[in-house]
């Protein structure tokens, strides 16, 4: 078939190869462009935080990364391997590099916490029962849940579910851990505990981590770099300080909780019509100098109150 997608040539794997690399990734869902030529990369051992308004495609980018969705166009490489053209079997193998913490924890309801954490070990290794039990104990102790190992997901709080979800995500010591809003719905103390765990996994276990969050306090404390997502694109990537002191209206508006900056009404209208926003951003994958990107933003003549999608429509 002449139009068939040809698998990309495997990239030579070097120390500088980005662990995760998005290049020109687009995805349209229900007629709306969710990802619009998305470009960014995450270095090995780095904790990369993705921030952005609800409904701008942050979670969709994670789903594309683990192959739960396929992009309409563009390339996604994980440790140099193109994943968009992988067969289901190849995807299964590739996914073992990942641990994913879902928003709700996504624990299997009919298994207790011990069995939930043991599940990936049971499915993918030939370890003895004793060895499995040791690892489960180690992971559950890490998230401070060993004493609750006999409990079922329905019997524990949201914070405990997330911690147990994290224990399960790292059971196989994955190379990359993805977090989909790890702190949402948690009290500040538990949220801080999760942040400490994320930092510990980076520092002690050298894991590459991608965290999608709304919580700026958390983002500043855990991130090596932060990327601001705005309607399917990264409009700025930089260190915590660079994001905090950003000149971009959209970024300032977001990080200040709406107290500063404004969202272009024109951008919003253009996005609703399925066109690109009025700004463009260039992100050079893997370039250490490209921490803070040059962004061309059309002037907004009348800063109007932001018209953003509500997070939860009652």
């Amino acid at each position: 078939m002449s139009g068939a997608i040809q698998p990309a040539e495997p990239q030579a794997l070097t120390l500088n190869t980005p662990m995760v690399e998005f290049a020109g990734v687009s995805k349209t869902l229900a007629g709306r462009k969710i990802l619009d030529k998305l470009e960014f990369s995450v270095k090995r051992g780095e904790t990369f935080v993705i921030i952005g308004y609800s409904g701008t495609g942050k979670s969709v980018s994670l789903r594309n990364l683990v192959g739960l969705m396929r992009p309409d166009e563009g390339s996604i490489r994980v440790a140099g391997e193109e994943i968009t053209t992988m067969t289901p079997r190849e995807l299964e193998v590739m996914r073992r590099k990942f641990g994913v913490l879902f928003q709700s924890g996504a624990l299997i309801a009919w298994l207790n916490l011990f069995d939930n954490v043991e599940l990936p070990l049971l499915e993918h290794t030939k370890m003895s029962r004793k060895k499995r039990a040791e690892i489960v104990q180690q992971k559950l102790e890490l998230v401070n849940l060993w004493q609750d190992r006999e409990k079922f997901p329905a019997e524990i709080s949201g914070g405990m579910k997330k911690r147990a979800g994290l224990a399960r995500a790292i059971a196989l010591d994955p190379e990359i851990v993805l977090y989909d809003e790890p702190c949402s719905g948690l009290d500040p103390v538990i949220a801080h505990e999760i942040d400490k765990l994320i930092i510990r996994l980076r520092d002690d276990m050298k894991m590459t981590q991608i965290v999608v969050t709304h919580d700026m306090e958390s983002a500043y404390s855990i991130a090596d770099r932060i990327g601001m997502f705005y309607h399917g694109r990264m409009i700025q990537i930089g260190t915590a300080d660079e994001i905090r002191n950003s000149n971009l209206e959209e970024v300032r508006h977001f990080v200040s909780g709406g107290r500063e900056g404004a969202v272009s009404v024109r951008s919003q209208a253009a996005i609703e019509k399925g066109r690109s926003p009025t700004f463009s951003a260039r992100v050079e994958a893997g370039n250490e100098q490209a921490e803070s990107e040059a962004v061309v933003l059309e002037p907004v003549s009348e800063p109007a109150p932001p018209k953003l999608e509500p997070e939860n429509t009652p």
């Binding site: 193998v93 996914r95 879902f102 996504a106 624990l107 299997i108 499915e123 993918h124 399960r168």
Partner: peptide, 13 residues
Amino acid sequence: AEEIDALEVMSIN
């Protein structure tokens, strides 16, 4: 509740 997705990303069919 994303449990089915979680199974898929754990490579459990």
